[in-house]
Design a protein around this nucleic acid. Structure first.
Lengths: 168, 168
DNA sequence: TTAAATTCCAACGCTTTGGTTGGATAATAC
DNA sequence: GTATTATCCAACCAAAGCGTTGGAATTTAA
């Protein structure tokens, strides 16, 4: 908390006045970051008929905001309950419903259960940032170079298409 | 450290005698767990001509030993250098070479760069255990029921085939 | 049986961390 | 002007964590 306050250019007492305690600060930030991701997708992502680029947009968001994945991993490693679980579950269920609809009308292939497809696509986009040390060991590059980053993005786009595009 | 010693049924001082300090304990355990995964794959996993089942075996290992993913995530979240990076890099490079060979001889499709394919398949198998809270919110199940677990496995197997199987 | 290890236990020192408090200082409102 | 509010600063507290130490007890070796 002292370090956060210092980086924020305020002092510790302010943090506690604004957010109450560490847990609530974490919750506030995580919820806000998740909302920003959703907004960014609403603005930038195409429809599900272009599932590759849709997933590429998730990748882009994580590339520019690597904090979010760190927050999610931390939440998963911690013992306690998840932050705001009911609302987040509802949000994901709406996404799953969208995917199910797209499978029904033939926009996406229906090889995979829609919920599991959503989960896998999120993973596809986020995995690079979840284990950067592993990505470095496997690919031999740390992913900061812009060429490597766009290669990784292309690979995510292509993989998403393999998983979900119609293949008649 | 006190909790670890207690769970191990010994006392703290033993831990320090055996492993030196916390960092070296972490390194020792991570290296050992990675070796166990490699051994398990050597015993159980089929060749790359059955890439789905190969990835399914990675999934199985993680399902039975969820500690390993937690160690990897922790390593990634921490600031310091990765554990034993040179040896691990060499190991992954050998795996990548195997995949490249399988792409060359037509066992696997060559749509994706082999290193990136290896990385994605690892993610495919590990992602379910990396963010259990997310998997719960998206799928509505916590994955402990054996039916849900085998559905997830089947989904990983199928996805791996989509990504890497030959599709003439 | 005696000597040398190994292990256990409890306490200790030191640092980090989450969180609070008391009062000085600045900004804002009336 | 004064009164109120917000901010800063520094110190403080209590708990937890890493690592050590000084024996006591137990096992092993000679």
């Amino acid at each position: 908390m002292a370090r956060i306050a210092s980086l924020a250019g305020i002092n510790k007492e302010r943090l506690y006045n604004y957010f109450g305690d560490k847990r609530r600060l974490f919750e506030t930030v995580l919820i806000e970051e998740l909302e920003k991701l959703a907004i960014s997708l609403g603005v930038n992502a195409p429809g599900l008929e272009n599932i590759g680029e849709y997933t590429g947009c998730i990748f882009d968001y994580h590339a520019e905001h690597p904090q979010l994945v760190r927050l999610l991993l931390w939440e998963g490693l911690a013992e306690g309950p998840a932050v705001n679980e009911a609302a987040r579950t509802a949000h994901y269920q709406r996404t799953v419903a969208m995917f199910a609809e797209a499978q029904r009308d033939g926009t996406l292939n229906d090889d995979l259960d829609p919920a599991k497809l959503v989960f896998l696509l999120i993973g596809l986009a986020a995995w690079w940032f979840a284990v950067p040390q592993l990505s470095r060991m496997v690919t031999g590059s740390d992913g900061s170079a812009s060429t490597e980053r766009s290669l990784r993005r292309a690979c995510v786009v292509s993989a998403a298409q393999h998983l979900a595009s119609r293949h008649p």
